[in-house]
């Protein structure tokens, strides 16, 4: 479980995050949603320590991450996996070398054990046999899946995903969402996803935190989204005329548009 306590973050004179207190639960897909510029990416970068909060605390279970020195943070990071928006695959390495990199760097496994682990991770993301391809030779969706494979290769306890669906078609987005969710449940890890994909919100949002102008505007789950009377949430979720029409049609005809449990 990860908790944030009164997180403030400012860049020069601009307050980007204003007192965010929330928690991200273990075994659940925790979503940070909000409009562009709401502070989602900043919050995610604070959680993994790529940025320092101006004030406040971030707790990894019972450990205050903000009080750790670099060496202690590295120990925590061994238990963290992260999928970047642009996948951040090392482009001069093959898919196999990319996934093997954390194993080479941090484990004493034999070559065969590493290869078995890499192949397992590739199988897990449905990319068997792609070992020797370079990132430039595979599609954006496949790159995301390689990114997921690399982020889970050390069996992390915490998984962070920055806009995992950006640049992907709806069908591939659903595959990625489902993959992240199943990995979360299977390994009982704490997953935090930064997204503004409505499909993700409605399908895998076990715990959703809505940021609005640097503040936590709403928190709940995917079932509570449709029943909420929060105006900011309503404007965010039903921003498109199509979704507004869909909701109105569902209400008029007494049809549920809630996702299946």
């Amino acid at each position: 479980m990860i908790r944030t306590e009164q997180i403030f973050k400012s860049f020069d004179d601009t307050d980007v995050l204003k007192g965010i207190t929330t928690s991200f639960e273990k075994g659940k897909t925790n979503l940070i949603i909000g409009r562009s510029g709401a502070g989602k990416t900043v919050l995610l970068k604070l959680l993994v320590g790529l940025l320092e909060p101006t004030s406040g605390a971030i707790w990894y279970d019972d450990i205050n991450f903000c009080e750790l020195n670099k060496k202690q943070r590295r120990a925590i990071r061994m238990e963290v996996g992260m999928l970047f928006q642009g996948s951040a695959l090392f482009d001069s390495m093959t898919v196999e070398e990319n996934i093997r990199f954390p194993l080479d760097m941090f484990t004493k496994k034999t070559r065969k054990e590493k290869l078995n682990r890499v192949n397992y991770c590739l199988e897990r993301v449905n990319l068997e046999g792609s070992n020797h391809k370079y990132p430039s030779e595979i599609s954006g969706g496949m790159q995301k899946r390689v990114g997921i494979a690399r982020s889970i290769v050390l069996e992390p306890r915490y998984l962070f995903c920055d806009e995992p669906n950006s640049g992907l078609d709806p069908k591939t987005s659903m595959v990625i969402d489902e993959l992240i969710r199943s990995i979360t449940i299977e390994n009982d890890i704490t997953t935090v996803i930064n997204t503004h994909d409505m499909n993700s919100v409605m399908e895998i949002g076990d715990n959703i935190a809505l940021l609005y102008q640097g503040e936590l505007a709403w928190q709940g789950n995917k079932d509570e989204v449709l029943n909420s009377d929060n105006k900011i949430l309503d404007e965010f979720i039903f921003a498109s005329p199509f979704l507004q029409r869909l909701r109105d049609a569902a209400l008029n005809n007494n049809v549920s548009i809630k996702p299946d449990k």
Binding site: L50, V80, A88, F90, D91, F106
Partner: peptide, 14 residues
């Protein structure tokens, strides 16, 4: 710029 350094940092690499 391609976030490779961030990716390594998060893995725990110095």
């Amino acid at each position: 710029q391609k976030e490779h350094i961030d990716a390594m940092e998060i893995m725990g690499v110095n």
